[in-house]
Nucleic acid binder design. Structure first.
Lengths: 288, 288
DNA sequence: ATTATTAAATGGATCACCCATTCAATGGAA
DNA sequence: TTCCATTGAATGGGTGATCCATTTAATAAT
């Protein structure tokens, strides 16, 4: 589309066809008279339209990570909408991890590499809203991790195992220096590395999202009570040995047993398991 | 600030403490001098602050589904921000499925029951942005469904099995009447019901998110080529029988084999597997 | 050549409006 | 009284003008 080439895909005249207030006298003329359902009115709003168009360009491959959208003022004019409503759309896309907005000359709206942490937020919101329960989350985590162990045994590469080994070293260090909260952070990383070693980013994303929440509970528990899982590094070593030996059955058994003991630790004091404690504030490294 | 109570948690004077432009002369005074990392500047913007505060109230349980936020004009004043920037925040939260905005007197921003379809959007975005691949998604789906079968065998209730049975009936009908695309829709529903029968909404959400994308490919394939999976209802029946008999091993085997044959069908014509075809437009029922 | 200054482009935010929708209150007709 | 049409206020949806803060490239001064 663009004329003028410049180092980083300046994405000029994207010739966005105007949106222009089709005042809601629409009703969307049912088309095929198959289903007598009249639910989805909700009067199409312009910012939704804008988001959708941009996502469409994304799906079509016209927009790719690294590309820059036209400046707000210009794009607003191209679309025939006010700058304010365009910004609402851009904001939403930014929150969705699709865009990154950067100030200054040479700034603009840049398409991002997908941010896998977004799924964590979904989980957190679902938990906050009571759509899912902590119990469901823990249960799902156990099952998914069981799957992860199998996949990791099948697919983990040397580099993955080395990273896990290095993580265990850090855990040992944190333990010996009594840095309990850092040790929790190590655990979080351990599961992240384990998930990554499946070689499947979808699985990894899923594991991360359920683990992130879980670790908040652990963090809160450790921070408030000062208790800590005994023989953690030792158990990790055993597990890694089984994993390295591609012994899925043993590795799975070890991990399950560990998860159960963590669960018991958490459930000792049900009060500390409250959502609020875990979700309310934001620990360093726990968030973008 | 008005008193006056009305039926549905009018959520008056929430006494939101003002935000009020702390002009970015912040630098966030490192606190513990542990990590010499200086990455996360990105100048805290007001809409982020607002989103965070509302999510905080949610996590704290102060705000619950069904509650209504103060009117835009009022809330903006309470927070000490302009109405526009407040709207940017509300928009983002609405896109995130946390809020629903409703016009008219007695309208407002209502906290929603969590919308599990949000995870679908995350998957779609990740795919659009090239963060995950179709291959990873398919692979993850196979593994997750394997897990689902086990859980469904263990936990499915009578009502779940009946719902699956009814779904198969619809499939039979659609098949006999040659409504191929409706049959795809039935498949989508089948997996949704199967996922629900695990009794775990987290698992269900995950399965839905990977299945939704997958079904777009199937839909596109069927729509373009007119081919259709042979003996579909029959295979479903066999599977359901195994499930009802709580025979996880058999059910798993049947499903795996079916998934493989679907995969073969899709891969016959690699061109049709392009992302664009599947993600670009929005089929009825596929989206909110 | 190096450094400080300036100017322009861009996102961030505000203000003052106006429109469209919704719903309770009002009031007139049956 | 009961019912239905009217009306008006509250609310979200949207616009346009205007200013601020940040960033970067071009320019000027050293």
């Amino acid at each position: 589309m663009s004329t003028k080439s410049s180092p980083r895909a300046p994405q000029r005249s994207r010739t966005a066809s105007p949106i222009r207030r089709e005042r809601a006298t629409d009703l969307r003329a049912a088309g095929s008279a198959a289903a007598p359902t009249f639910k989805p009115i909700h009067t199409r709003r312009t910012f939704e339209e804008i988001c959708e168009r941009i996502r469409e360009q994304l799906a079509l491959g016209v927009l790719k990570p690294g590309d820059k959208l036209p400046a707000e003022r210009e794009l607003a004019q191209q679309l025939g909408v006010s700058r304010n409503v365009l910004r609402e759309a851009l904001r939403s896309l930014e929150m969705a991890g699709v865009l990154r907005l950067q100030k200054g000359v040479k700034g603009g709206a840049f398409i991002q590499q997908g941010d896998t942490r977004r799924m964590n937020e979904v989980m957190r919101d679902m938990l906050s809203l009571g759509t899912i329960s902590v119990r469901e989350l823990s249960e799902a985590r156990v099952h998914v991790l069981d799957l992860v162990v199998q996949l990791a045994c099948a697919n983990a590469r040397r580099a993955d195992l080395d990273a896990l080994e290095a993580n265990i070293e850090r855990t040992v260090l944190a333990t010996s220096e009594g840095r309990l909260l850092d040790r929790v952070e190590c655990s979080r990383e351990f599961y992240k590395l384990l998930a990554a070693s499946t070689g499947n980013k979808v699985i990894a994303m899923i594991v991360d999202s359920v683990t992130e929440i879980h670790m908040r509970f652990v963090y809160a528990k450790v921070a408030s009570s000062g208790v800590a899982m005994a023989r953690l590094a030792e158990k990790r070593r055993q597990f890694l040995t089984a994993l390295s030996a591609r012994n899925a059955e043993l590795a799975g058994r070890l991990l399950r047993s560990h998860l159960e003991s963590v669960q018991r630790m958490l459930e000792q004091d049900p009060g500390a398991m409250s959502l609020h404690v875990a979700l309310a504030d934001v620990q360093p490294g726990m968030r973008r």
